[in-house]
Amino acid sequence: MILEAVVLQVKKGMEAEYEKAFRGASKIISSMNGYISHELQRCMEVEGKYLLLVQWETLEDHTVGFRQSTEYQEWKKRLHHFYDPFPTVEHFEKVYTLES
């Protein structure tokens, strides 16, 4: 499993509109091959700052399967105009988990 992590800064005053657009766009990403789950979290300290976490089966499911798809073009159209600056996307693999 690969974790895609993205810190997003949404333009001031557009947060509610962004959250609504994100909910609608979630159908796009969740339909992709290799998709496992995703969540969007709002920062409590910084207005307009969000953390997007997406779990993929493989790195290529995101970088090739999603990013090079027509579905990604629709995702981009719905969401990318909200960001300033444009976010950096990073990928992580699990090293350690403590289970209770």
Rank of each mutant, 00 (worst) to 15 (best):
L3H: 00
K94H: 01
Y50N: 12
M1N: 07
Q41R: 09
E99W: 05
E15G: 13
R42A: 13
E17Y: 02
Q73Y: 00
A21K: 07
T70D: 14
V95A: 07
F66A: 12
K76H: 07
T58N: 11
T63G: 03
A21D: 10
V6H: 06
S100W: 02
G48A: 13
A5D: 07
K49D: 06
E90H: 09
L79K: 04
L53P: 01
E99N: 15
M14A: 08
F86H: 04
E45D: 15
K11Q: 08
C43L: 04
H62N: 07
E90N: 08
V54Y: 06
L40Y: 09
L8E: 01
V54W: 04
D61C: 07
Y96K: 12
F82A: 04
L53C: 11
R78H: 03
I2M: 15
Y72H: 14
D61G: 05
F22K: 05
Y18S: 12
K20Q: 10
V46F: 09
Y50F: 15
K12V: 02
F22E: 05
G13P: 14
Y96H: 09
Y35G: 03
W75I: 03
F82D: 01
K76N: 04
L8C: 06
S69Y: 03
E39K: 08
S31N: 13
Q55S: 06
K20C: 05
V7P: 00
L52M: 13
Q68L: 12
M44I: 00
L40R: 06
V89Q: 04
I2T: 14
Y50K: 06
I29A: 13
L79Y: 04
F66T: 10
E99G: 09
E45T: 15
G13C: 11
L79Q: 06
T88P: 03
K76M: 01
A21F: 06
I29C: 07
V89N: 05
E74V: 09
L3I: 10
L51R: 08
H38I: 10
E19T: 00
N33P: 15
E4P: 12
K12G: 08
V95W: 02
M1W: 05
M1C: 14
V6D: 02
Y83G: 08
F82L: 09
V89I: 11
F22Q: 06
K49Y: 04
M14E: 13
T97K: 14
E4F: 11
E45I: 11
E60D: 11
Y35R: 02
E4N: 10
F92K: 12
L59K: 15
Y83C: 04
S26L: 01
G65N: 05
E57R: 13
Q41A: 12
V54Q: 03
M14F: 15
L3R: 12
L51T: 00
K11E: 00
V46A: 15
E60N: 09
A21Q: 12
L98S: 06
Y35D: 07
